[in-house]
């Protein structure tokens, strides 16, 4: 009976996700002949081209750098709101705050990027304000910089961090903190010594999630970064659809997936080793 209930879903995922990924992997080993879809063969030339071309190496390092910095910012910015939402006494304020976090998170990347374009664009709100107040006469270029992309990615990923941390803090028993406070610890110390160690699983989950999302962000670098600020996901799209170089595009996709996986495992391992209780590394 279980087989009958499960098979449609399993079939859908095998046929429409597993097989395509296997095919993509196979394509990354094909040689590229312009004008032809599939030239069978086994070669590593797509990968060697990637790692020997300084342009693509830069794109990868830039993607990794932006992802690490944005994830750290999300973690630092996310803790306070997450803690506040988990502990606020007014149920009404709590559900308003949760909607404020969940709504942007569910809005999809197109609309959120549209929001930042409306704010930061040459003809956007911030420039309109600067011109109106007479602070500048010509529009200031706020888009197409690394900082703008970083701000965009942080704002897109931050809600994921807040909601992940919040749901973990919610399950930490309040009397534990109250005991620490009652015994004379300052609120900050009680948080650092009692809550933080207990919320480490949430910190790991949130960090991993934000990092994966940042590594794969597409719309933010495409529109806010523009042609000057290339990242991996738009490069995959470019190779597959515009340049029609499927083998190289497939190799890019696999480098992106593999790098994300390795760095995700590494960061989860590092965070798992870190133990705030002893104030540093576990021995």
């Amino acid at each position: 009976m279980a087989a009958g209930l499960l098979s449609p879903s399993i079939l859908a995922i095998v046929l429409l996700l597993a097989f395509p990924l296997i095919l993509l992997g196979r394509y990354s080993l094909n040689p590229f002949v312009p004008g032809e879809f599939a030239t069978e063969g086994v070669t590593l030339e797509n990968f060697t081209r990637f790692f020997s071309d300084p342009y693509y190496r830069d794109v990868l390092f830039r993607t990794i750098g932006i992802s690490i910095v944005s994830t750290i910012c999300c973690l630092l910015l996310g803790i306070a709101p997450a803690y506040y939402i988990a502990r606020v006494r007014s149920a009404r304020l709590k559900s308003i705050l949760i909607i404020c976090v969940v709504l942007p998170l569910l809005m999809g990347n197109a609309v959120r990027v549209a929001g930042w374009m409306v704010l930061l664009g040459d003809r956007g709100v911030i420039n309109a304000f600067l011109t109106f107040t007479g602070l500048t006469s010509a529009p200031v270029e706020l888009l197409y910089t690394g900082k703008a992309v970083l701000i965009g990615i942080i704002s897109v990923n931050l809600p994921f961090m807040i909601i992940t941390l919040q749901s973990v803090i919610e399950n930490i028993a309040r009397p534990l903190e109250e005991a620490a406070l009652g015994l004379g610890a300052s609120p900050l110390r009680a948080f650092y010594r009692v809550v933080l160690p207990l919320m480490m699983p949430g910190v790991i989950a949130g960090t991993v999630l934000c990092f994966i999302l940042a590594m794969n962000s597409y719309a933010t670098p495409l529109l806010i970064g523009g042609p000057k600020f290339q990242m991996m996901a738009p490069a995959v799209y470019e190779q597959i659809t515009r340049a029609s170089n499927w083998p190289f595009g497939a190799a890019l996709a696999f480098v992106l997936m593999f790098t994300t996986l390795v760095l995700t495992v590494l960061s989860a391992w590092l965070l798992g080793r870190y133990d705030p209780q002893s104030g540093g590394k576990r021995t």
Binding site: L16, L17, F19, P20, L21, L23, L24, Y27, N216, Y218, A233, V236, Y237, I240, T241, W246, G249, A250, A253, L256, M257
Partner: peptide
């Protein structure tokens, strides 16, 4: 992007 390109080629 990875899933999309895979399904497209498929």
């Amino acid at each position: 992007v990875v899933a999309g390109s895979a399904v497209y080629i498929y």
